[in-house]
């Protein structure tokens, strides 16, 4: 399969990239790992006259730890994120998302920025980005914005990124003690799979009162974008972290929070049912981890 002809740009700094973006605007696409974009170009699903590759901009693939947050550069790959000790320790659900994306080859190229900008409702890192309350860092020429991840996705394949903007990375607050998270994705086979449903949950409890004091639950593949399960979260907040309350929250997520559709990968009915099962299971494991944290 042939790629259409395009002009190739390889800026060495963010500034240079932003200048190009400003100049070329709609007529240029950002190339990160290329695992979505090159496929889409080959299949003629998208067209462009210019590709701006970010791979030579070192700052974009850094993972750095600050006092109470970490920064993950947009061009950090799945493999790289998964190898990061701080992520393995403090962001288990994100690591699990990265470990489950595609396969060992794709993970060496696929970036977290690409996964977010591709904005598939089934994206494997997206529920984790949601439950860790990430902030998307956007830049355009001479301008920066920070968008809470919950506001980032606007539809299937759509995000709030403007044509002259680049996603530079994410800031994730470091979870407190007594918190834990978990991610489960469900598909038909065990590798290279596009999810039928994927769910991540985060939970923090007060060891004194033994009550849930923070929870965030994110659902993938059951709406136009990955979503937070607000009603389920509300149902769990202030409850004792135990099977009954996880089940009640899961029921909320299943009945109230998700809006799946039928497609050739699965029916709405099944997806909805699985939201319940996966929510319950992710909460239970999140709590196990919180106890150990």
């Amino acid at each position: 399969m042939l790629l259409p002809m395009f002009e190739f740009h390889e800026p060495l700094s963010i500034e240079e990239a932003l200048e190009l973006k400003k100049k070329l605007g709609q007529n240029a696409r950002i190339l990160a790992g290329g695992t979505d974009l090159l496929v889409h170009l080959k299949k003629k699903l998208v067209k462009t006259d210019n590709l701006i590759s970010l791979s030579r901009i070192k700052a974009l693939s850094l993972i750095t730890e600050q006092k109470d947050s970490i920064f993950i550069g947009a061009c950090a790959t799945m493999a790289q994120i998964s190898r990061s000790p701080v992520i393995a320790k403090k962001f288990t659900a994100l690591k699990s998302g990265c470990d489950n994306l595609g396969n060992h080859l794709i993970r060496n190229r696929a970036t977290i920025g690409g996964n977010a900008c591709n904005a598939s409702p089934a994206g494997d890192t997206l529920p984790a980005l949601l439950i860790y309350d990430s902030v998307a860092l956007l830049e355009s020429y001479g301008k920066k914005r920070e968008i809470p991840i919950a506001d980032f996705f606007t539809g299937p394949g759509k995000s709030c990124i403007q044509p002259d903007e680049i996603l530079t990375g994410f800031r994730l607050p470091i979870p407190t003690d007594h918190s834990g998270a978990h991610y489960i994705q469900l598909g038909k086979r065990k590798s290279s799979e596009i999810n039928v449903v994927n769910v991540a949950s985060f939970l923090e409890y007060d060891p004194g009162t033994k009550k849930v004091i923070t929870t965030r639950i994110a659902l993938g593949s059951v709406a136009a974008t990955p979503i937070r399960a607000a009603r389920a979260e509300a149902a769990l907040l202030g409850q004792a972290p135990e099977e009954a309350s996880f089940f009640a929250a899961a029921e909320m997520a299943r009945r109230e929070d998700c809006r799946p559709i039928d497609d050739f990968r699965g029916t709405a009915g099944y997806r909805q049912a699985m939201v319940g099962v996966l929510t319950k299971r992710t909460l239970a494991t999140a709590y196990e981890r919180a106890k150990g944290a």
């Binding site: 086979r189 590798s191 290279s192 596009i194 050739f264």
Partner: peptide, 24 residues
């Protein structure tokens, strides 16, 4: 192999047509 209502294959690639992988 999955078709749409126009007789077109919807999963004409090895991502959506799922053969066994080493993990399965």
């Amino acid at each position: 192999v999955i078709f749409n209502d126009k007789g077109q294959v919807l999963n004409a690639d090895l991502a959506e047509y799922k053969i066994v992988t080493s993990m399965d």
